[in-house]
């Protein structure tokens, strides 16, 4: 892989509307916080996609290793009793 010479990498998270979750939009290159925010704005928000942005240095994100997927995520699948699906929904409850 070629060495990335384009400044540091930052991850961009955007909120579509006030109160909504921040969702990962992509990444940008920048040399500092201010530039990261501006680049994120220029790259991801020009068509009204968001009203608020977070930028986080890519280094600051701790990610799980895909090689560990068996160990981390697989055990959940065959234990249906862990799912709250055996309860009868109270009448009138729309979102539980």
């Amino acid at each position: 892989m070629a060495t990335d010479t384009q400044l540091a990498s930052w991850e961009v998270f955007m909120q579509g509307k006030p109160g909504a979750n921040y969702i990962h939009a992509g990444s940008v290159h920048a040399s500092d916080k201010k530039m990261a925010l501006q680049n994120a704005r220029d790259t991801y928000t020009r068509r009204g996609e968001g009203t608020s942005i977070w930028v986080v240095p890519t280094d600051a994100i701790v990610a799980s290793n895909p090689d560990d997927n068996d160990m981390l995520f697989d055990p959940a699948n065959d234990k249906a009793y862990r799912m709250p699906t055996f309860y009868t929904m109270p009448e009138g409850a729309k979102a539980i």
Partner: peptide
């Protein structure tokens, strides 16, 4: 110089 700046200037 970089893609992000390309977008900024053309914006």
């Amino acid at each position: 110089p970089i893609l992000e700046e390309d977008l900024a200037l053309t914006n």
